[in-house]
Design a protein around this nucleic acid. Structure first.
Lengths: 150, 150
DNA sequence: ATGATATCCTAGTAAATTGATAGTTATTAT
DNA sequence: ATAATAACTATCAATTTACTAGGATATCAT
């Protein structure tokens, strides 16, 4: 299926949470877990590869926690998804022609290759900064509505 | 993972095979299986939903077989993939807000919704006719090269 | 030093999905 | 009749997914 697993689903929410706190010190996993309503243990399994990929920093011990390694503007959905869900590549043969002996003459492969590239482009245009802005706007609008109707 | 299962992978090749024979009568599953090097039994599991979705017609009995119900120009990747892999929708909450109680205020959802729409658009721009043309060009070029070097 | 607070790491597992095979029945052209 | 072909059902091993459990290790505040 063309769909995200919970890794990508939760991972993006985790990274957005960190983005919302960027520049304000470290964020503990427990806090993220509570805000996002995701098990702390499960979140950790997402943290590990993200840290390994250099997207977040960690500080151990009391008052420890996590933070983005670079500004939200410089991290996009492609970065996050490819770490957590593997390379965005609709079929193995796209990145690795030897995965199928038909590769050389297969039109389907050409099409999937082109399509993969387009999807990748879409994902890389959405940054965490974009999402932070959207989040703030949404909350603002929601508050205005509340004032109006309640 | 953002990737296709073998259903979509084989299914598109199956439909392209039928497209290449469009207007030339029925094609038996055995022939497709041999040309595409895919098990006949497995192919049948793809045929069933495609037929049910109205993309192909079947004729039983001797000399029976399959054919596209409409010209290759009027069938695109979105049609095929959504039948075989389910709706192109990165997360359940995108089509069905009640799948997650955070839907109303979740920015991640908004972003995945927009992204799903863009991917859908990409898939619907590629028709079987496009693929048939590419296939014929590729074979032509390949033959020219052969004449040149061998 | 010590204890509280975090990160870090390894295993395990039930459920779902995937990819494929086998065998049987129904229908039609010849 | 019979050969060819679609239509259907059931099964199954392997993989992936989505978690959970239990602890080891590092760091800071006191």
């Amino acid at each position: 299926m063309i769909r995200l697993s919970t890794k990508g689903r939760y991972g993006v929410r985790l990274m957005l949470d960190l983005a919302l706190h960027f520049g304000k010190g470290l964020v503990s996993l427990r806090d993220v877990a509570q805000r996002q309503e995701i098990s702390e243990k499960y979140l950790w399994q997402l943290i590990a590869p993200l840290k390994h990929a250099g997207l977040i920093n960690a500080a151990r011990g009391a008052n420890g926690g996590y933070a983005l390694t670079r500004p939200p503007k410089q991290i996009n959905l492609k970065d996050i998804v490819s770490v957590l869900e593997g390379p965005v590549c609709l079929l193995d043969c796209v990145n690795n022609p030897s995965a199928c002996k038909r590769s050389a003459l297969c039109i389907a492969r050409d099409v999937w290759q082109e399509t993969s590239r387009k999807i990748l482009k879409i994902l890389s245009t959405v940054t965490l900064e974009n999402m932070v802005h959207k989040q703030k706007n949404k909350i603002k609008n929601w508050n205005q509505k509340s004032r109006k109707y309640y």
